[in-house]
Design a protein around this nucleic acid. Structure first.
Lengths: 226, 226
DNA sequence: AAAAGCAGGATTGTATACAATTATCTGGGA
DNA sequence: TCCCAGATAATTGTATACAATCCTGCTTTT
């Protein structure tokens, strides 16, 4: 699959990051290097590298000579991220409409076809992955590595919210229809329409989560370690 | 001052980061752990931590089992960052106008007073630092740690461009006057006016650099190591 | 009894040792 | 001459050793 020949530090980084985003840890919970190392069967060195990286992303706080504490993505953070995406993602789609490569349009089309196939069979699992992939390629198509980098991170941070959102009956179908509109606008090289379509998509997503209640996503995190 | 009791890894990180932003390295130049360690009188461990963090920021690329290569901030990156700031920074100022704490307004006022003092004596050195400080507090005043984090990084990445821009005769005075307008708008809790003031400030900065030529900022980097 | 001080253990910070991988150089063969 | 092993050197990846710091609980002192 996709996770294979990475270096240990990167693997550990991705695992802890995933766990934090997924809400496996309590806020402010301490991450001990040895404990994590034992858990993942690695020494402290790669764990330390991972923790330092996570601090840079703001997902943990490191107090010198004390330890690393989980910061996580709060409910407020998620709402802030959606606000930021509302500013940036439409802009990115507009740029994509202007300058997306044929190869990228094909990739998007492929994803859409796959998505439209899976939606009929209600394969929710696959849908979440395809949704992510769609947005990621959209970010690349914008042609700005800075914009791409930021949007990819934000999108990842919202993983939990997205999962909830797509589970609401009818939302998945609607979401995919919106993706299709975005893609068609980009294919037509219609900048304005692409921007609008993305903004609409985001607004709907936000409304959807609003109805669900933001607290239900970030609020009830449990510990669990495993 | 400010650089004192940090851990080695953090120090190394900041040093290399500063060097990359300042253009000390050639693009794609290889960063060898031992060489940097010798240079800074530390072992490989903190250097590795630093390089891993820099990779996350996109300032270096790490090829497993090969090495770390300088990516840096290209001319295109800078222009992209300005575009993104044009989207985000006005938004941030608007939020600041709504919700800045009295303490933050005071801090901004203090910086403005200092700046207006130094401008008369043409202390360009201090001006650059105060300019940065002004923007940083503005980012904090927005009240979104996500937004703050992103904007701080972008602002830092543009260090070289800013330096050039402020050296243009007359631009420093103008820039400071714009800062004053931004601050007054925020103090007046006038969201719209704050947004506009920031956007104007950014547009002027961009125009200023346009006139100077982007290539002159990123283009002629030399090596030099010391 | 409360507070200060002092072991002892636990955890992080840094350096170094060893393993694995990759690059470089050399020599032999076609 | 060109190309391809094979050995050697250099560099990175990971683990471990040692040092420094911090926390804990007890003792001692007031």
């Amino acid at each position: 699959m996709s996770e294979a020949n990475y270096l240990l530090g990167q693997k550990v980084f991705q695992i802890i990051r995933e766990d934090i985003i997924a809400g496996k840890y309590q806020r402010k919970e301490e991450l001990r290097e040895i404990a994590i190392g034992d858990e993942l069967q690695v020494s402290r060195t790669p764990v330390r590298e991972a923790l330092r990286q996570l601090e840079l992303e703001g997902l943990v706080t490191i107090v010198p000579n004390r330890g690393a504490y989980v910061e996580g993505i709060s409910c407020q953070d998620m709402q802030d991220i959606f606000e930021i995406r509302l500013l940036m993602e439409g802009f990115c789609a507009g740029k994509a409409a202007e300058s997306a490569a044929a190869e990228q349009l094909e990739a998007l089309e492929e994803i859409m076809v796959l998505t439209e196939y899976h939606i009929k069979n209600e394969h929710t699992r696959q849908l979440i992955g395809l949704d992510s992939k769609f947005h990621e390629i959209l970010y690349e198509a914008g042609g700005s590595r800075i914009l791409e980098h930021a949007l990819k991170n934000y999108h990842y941070y919202l993983k939990r919210a997205r999962r909830f959102s797509l589970l609401v009956p009818g939302r998945a179908v609607e979401s995919i229809r919106e993706h299709r509109q975005i893609l068609e606008a980009i294919k037509a090289r219609d900048k304005k329409k692409a921007e609008d379509a993305v903004n609409q998509h985001l607004i709907h997503t936000i409304k959807n989560i609003d109805a669900y209640g933001w607290e239900n996503i970030t609020g009830g995190q449990k510990n669990g370690k495993n």
